[in-house]
Lab assay of single mutants.
Amino acid sequence: EPSQADLDALLSAVRDNRLSIEQAVTLLTPSSGGGSGGGSMDAKEILTRFKDGGLDRAAAQALLAGRTPA
């Protein structure tokens, strides 16, 4: 399960175009075949909204942490 520091680094990389959204989703869902963790939004949607400015960093982190299976 990614830590808050991992999520923060991942969000920074996506925002700075050092990591594509697809690459980030793969890192967030290493063994689930890329499927959502059952959250209301999947990781790709969360990351896309964050990059487009629709979500701030704290909200994106909380959503990603919340949808990651324990």
Rank of each mutant, 00 (worst) to 15 (best):
A43C: 10
G66M: 06
A43H: 06
I21M: 03
A24S: 02
D56C: 05
Q61R: 12
S31A: 12
L64D: 01
D16F: 04
R67K: 12
A65H: 05
D56E: 06
S36L: 10
D56Q: 04
L27A: 05
R49M: 08
F50Y: 11
D16H: 08
Q23H: 08
L55H: 02
A43F: 15
P2V: 07
K51R: 10
L28G: 01
A13K: 05
L7N: 03
S40P: 09
D16W: 03
T26E: 15
L27P: 01
G66L: 05
G34D: 08
S12F: 03
D56R: 03
G66S: 09
P2R: 10
L47E: 00
A43M: 11
D42S: 13
T48M: 09
L64V: 02
D56V: 03
L10D: 00
A5R: 07
A9F: 12
G35C: 10
A9Y: 13
L28F: 06
L10V: 11
G39I: 13
S31M: 09
T26N: 13
L27M: 11
A24Y: 01
L7V: 10
G35V: 10
E45N: 07
S40L: 15
A59Q: 14
L27H: 05
L10M: 06
A62M: 10
P30Q: 11
P30I: 13
E22N: 07
V14L: 07
Q61H: 08
G34H: 07
A60K: 00
S31P: 10
A58K: 10
L64N: 01
S40C: 13
M41G: 07
L28V: 04
R67G: 14
Q4R: 10
L19S: 02
A62N: 14
Q23G: 06
D52Q: 12
M41L: 10
L55T: 02
L7Q: 02
T26C: 14
L10Q: 00
S36T: 12
P69G: 08
L64I: 05
R67D: 15
G53C: 04
K51V: 05
Q61N: 13
D8R: 04
S3V: 09
Q23A: 10
S20T: 14
Q4M: 15
L63C: 07
T26Q: 15
S20M: 03
G39C: 10
S32I: 13
S40E: 06
D42I: 08
G39P: 12
P69L: 08
T68I: 12
L63T: 02
P2I: 14
A65Q: 12
D8L: 05
D16A: 06
L10R: 01
L55Y: 04
G39M: 12
D6Q: 08
L28R: 00
Q4C: 15
L55C: 03
S40R: 07
A60C: 05
S32M: 13
V14R: 00
M41F: 13
T26R: 09
A62Q: 14
A5S: 10
A58E: 11
R57W: 15
I21R: 00
A70K: 09
E22L: 07
S20H: 03
D16K: 04
D52Y: 07
Q4A: 13
G33I: 12
A65N: 11
R67P: 09
G39Y: 05
F50I: 01
A24T: 02
S12H: 06
I46Y: 01
N17R: 06
A9N: 06
